[in-house]
Every structure is written in structure tokens, then in C-alpha cells.
């Protein structure tokens, strides 16, 4: 099967127009952004929306990366390639965005695929979600009448391919708090370049005065959603960075994740790799932290 089921198509003229269309179509519609997840799923008939609303005309409204106070704001239609090449992101969050974007699929996908699409697909093996979870980003959801709500990633991702975005809501922006003394890294083991992760780990640290002041650790492909390793984060904050500490955090990640056995490997292997990659990512995050 490589042929989507019949469906209707329309273009959005603004964010509010897209939301009005969602409202009018009553749950039978999906937002089409980059199309590199939705269209293949439609071709395999794993997704059969009656209607797709194309938001690509909203490039000027929704493709941006900017700093506002202690936050970086990324528009939902910002392409992966924009994040990969962003000097601002690289300056504020060195390594972590570039490392994740560089191993996310391939250039064709990165040229079209978007921040919003990555998060809304809610694939637990996806790389960018791991970064946003580790950085404790928040999603801005807009609904009918311009009502907006801001949700953290734990609340946003409900399970594989499930989010808390309501049928009449649209993800418009991701907000990420900035930190001084920031260091980050993304580690991934995949079968081949561009593949979904067997396991990936994202680590974000802020180190000031020799102490860890902020810690974010996320593991991908080892749970129903991208997992935030809370125990490790608590263990890190307030401590001086050390290889022993990072090894302990790796053990926590291995213990706390909940992988399934599948074609990419059995649960015990994934658990082991989650530990190894968490340790590696933390170690590199600390080594590259801006002093």
C-alpha cells in the first residue's frame, strides 16, 4: 500500500484560520506541516484523516527562532534545517540542538520537517523531542477565539502518537528557558544514519561556581513517550560534576526507563544502552559547559 485513502485538502491563511477550519471540520482533520510523518502514515493507511489543513502558507507567522528575556521561542513551523543551522540556538544551547538535528533523519526530511510536527507526532524514538524534554521546554497551544495555554512536555506527550493537543487546538510555539553556564549533548545509537533511535539520550546542564544549577536528562525510544529521568536530574542539581556522578545517573536512567522488545532490540539491551548514552551525554555536556 503506497496510496493514501481519499481525503480533502485545504490551505490555511493564518493560524486563526487554521483553528477555525479545525473547528468547522469537527475532529476529522489533521494539520499538515512538513508532511514527513503524516504523509507516509497516510500512504500506509495508518493515518486516514478525512481532511488535511496545510499550514505551510504560514511560514512568515510560524517560522522563527528568537530570544525574549530568559527564553528562546521557536515557532511551530520552524524547519529542522533552521534549527540545525541557527547561530542563536548554537550560542545559547551549544551542541545539543545541532547534535540532535544532525542525526535526525536526512537532509530531505530536515528541509521540510518542523518543530511542531516533531512534537505533535509524539514518536518516542524521535530526537528533537528528547532535546525539548531535557531543556524543559513548554508548548504553546492556541485554540478557538485565540485562547492560549502553555503546557510542559510531561503534560504534552501522553503516549505514542498521542498528545494533549485538542482537536480544535494547534501547537504554535515552543518556549525554552535559558541558563548561564549551559552545556548539552545528544547521544544516539541507531541502526544506520537517519534511522529512528534504538536508544537516544539528551543531557542539559548548567554549571555555575563548580556546581550544577540545572539538569535535564531525557531518554528516547525507551518508553511510551520521550522519558524525562527525574531521579537523575535531582541527583545532579547542587552537585559538582564528576564521572562517578554521571555513571550513577546512567544507572538511574537504565533502571527508570521502560523499553519494549522490538525489531530494534530486546528490552535489556535498550536499558543497557540508555545507561551508557546517558552517562556519555552528561559527561560531554559538562565538558562543554560554558564557563
Amino acid at each position: 500500500m503506497q496510496t493514501p485513502a481519499p481525503c480533502e485538502y485545504s490551505r490555511a491563511t493564518s493560524v486563526d484560520d487554521a483553528i477555525a477550519q479545525l473547528q468547522a471540520l469537527g475532529g476529522n482533520a489533521r494539520i499538515l506541516a512538513g508532511g514527513y510523518s503524516l504523509i507516509p502514515m497516510m500512504k500506509l493507511r495508518l493515518a486516514n484523516p478525512g481532511h488535511v489543513i496545510d499550514i505551510n502558507p504560514l511560514e512568515s507567522e510560524l517560522n522563527y527562532i528568537r530570544q525574549e528575556g530568559n527564553e528562546i521561542r521557536i515557532g511551530a513551523l520552524t524547519r529542522h534545517v533552521n534549527m540545525l543551522e541557527s547561530d542563536l540556538l548554537s550560542q545559547v544551547f551549544p551542541h545539543i540542538f545541532r547534535e540532535a538535528e544532525a542525526v535526525l533523519a536526512d537532509p530531505v526530511v530536515r528541509n521540510r520537517g518542523t518543530m511542531g510536527g516533531s512534537l505533535c507526532q509524539s514518536d518516542p524514538a524521535e530526537d528533537l523531542s528528547g532535546v525539548v524534554v531535557a531543556l524543559k521546554g513548554e508548548a504553546v497551544l492556541r485554540g478557538p477565539g485565540g485562547a492560549e495555554r502553555v503546557v510542559g512536555m510531561e503534560e504534552f506527550h501522553l503516549g505514542p502518537y498521542m498528545t494533549s493537543v485538542q482537536p480544535t487546538e494547534m501547537l504554535i510555539e515552543v518556549r525554552i528557558p535559558t541558563h548561564s553556564g549551559f552545556g548539552g549533548a545528544h547521544e544516539k545509537v541507531e541502526r544506520r544514519a537517519g534511522d529512528f533511535a534504538i536508544v537516544a539520550a539528551s543531557a542539559a546542564l548548567a554549571i555555575e561556581g563548580g556546581r550544577i544549577t540545572f539538569a535535564g536528562v531525557a531518554c528516547s525510544a525507551v518508553g511510551p513517550t520521550t522519558l524525562h529521568i527525574e531521579r537523575a536530574e535531582k541527583a545532579l542539581v547542587g552537585q559538582a560534576p564528576s564521572e562517578d556522578l554521571f555513571a550513577q545517573c546512567g544507572q538511574m536512567a537504565a533502571a527508570d526507563c521502560s523499553p519494549n522488545s522490538d525489531g530494534r532490540g530486546p528490552a535489556d539491551y535498550k536499558r543497557h544502552v540508555a545507561g551508557v548514552l546517558t552517562t556519555r551525554a552528561l559527561s560531554r555536556a559538562a565538558a562543554t559547559a560554558v564557563s
Binding site: L44, D106, R191, R192, A193, G194, D195, F196, G263
Partner: peptide, 24 residues
């Protein structure tokens, strides 16, 4: 190419069947 014990093809797409790329 992997079939499960019921004879279902597990590697039916390029997402499941890993062809090497220039990166490999």
C-alpha cells in the same frame, strides 16, 4: 528480512529494513 513465527513480514518498509546509506 525478518518474518515472525506466524509468517508475518516484520521488515516490510525501509523504516524496518535498514539499507546502508553513504553515511555507513
Amino acid at each position: 528480512v525478518v518474518y515472525d513465527e506466524r509468517g508475518q513480514l516484520v521488515t516490510g518498509t525501509f523504516v524496518d529494513y535498514a539499507l546502508p546509506t553513504t553515511m555507513e
